[in-house]
Design a protein around this nucleic acid. Structure first.
Lengths: 101, 101
DNA sequence: TAAATATATGAACAGATGTTCACATATACA
DNA sequence: TGTATATGTGAACATCTGTTCATATATTTA
């Protein structure tokens, strides 16, 4: 009945790389081909492919082949919601109440 | 107006280590002293201290000194909510629909 | 089949990261 | 002050991880 910390930490670790997080954000709302993601994020298609493989392995994205292109999307609403949530937290400006250094 | 990906990724990276995640979970609901956390997680107080410093630096926990002990708690409801959310996602059993390897 | 486009993969390297250990600091009490 | 308890810190080390580069696979069209 205990929480599977390893699995949760694994997910967090994947989201912990800025490049990989940008890649996931790039295909958060609609399916997008690897090349397009690579352009938007500003890295090589090869690197995007590497990262997408990890994200797919963790079920954070789904892949769909269509002709020469492979489209990737965030796996489900849960992923979208989670991402939205943390981004919101990160967006909070530094509060003035920081008592101790 | 763009998302601060670096900050979000930084938070995720911190949560991405199993030991550190366990430490945060140990003081998620109520303030707890370092030694107690160390015992529960099963690691040295030194290591707990190292990790708590990082968590504190990211405002994921708050520290309160009380006599010889220093109590740590999850910083706010946002952190608690976020953690709860992802753990829930991780708890989802492997779905049977895994089309392609 | 051959060529072109799109994506995937493996090896290799540099840099980051978690852990340990020894020691330092802080607080309380005799 | 001196001792005991609780926590913090720095260096050192082994391991992990992101990135690059070359190359392989897949798909379409000529």
């Amino acid at each position: 009945m205990s929480i599977d910390v390893a699995v949760s930490a694994g997910m967090f670790r994947l989201l912990g790389d800025p490049t990989r997080l940008r890649i996931l954000l790039a295909c958060l709302d609609r399916p997008r081909p690897v090349g397009e993601i690579a352009e938007e994020v500003g890295v090589s298609p090869s690197l995007v492919s590497h990262h997408l493989r990890l994200l797919k392995g963790a079920r954070l994205v789904r892949a769909t082949r269509e002709a020469r292109h492979v489209f990737y999307v965030a796996a489900d609403e849960h992923v979208r919601h989670m991402l939205h949530d943390v981004i919101e937290h990160a967006a909070e400006d530094d509060l003035p109440n920081t008592p101790d250094a």
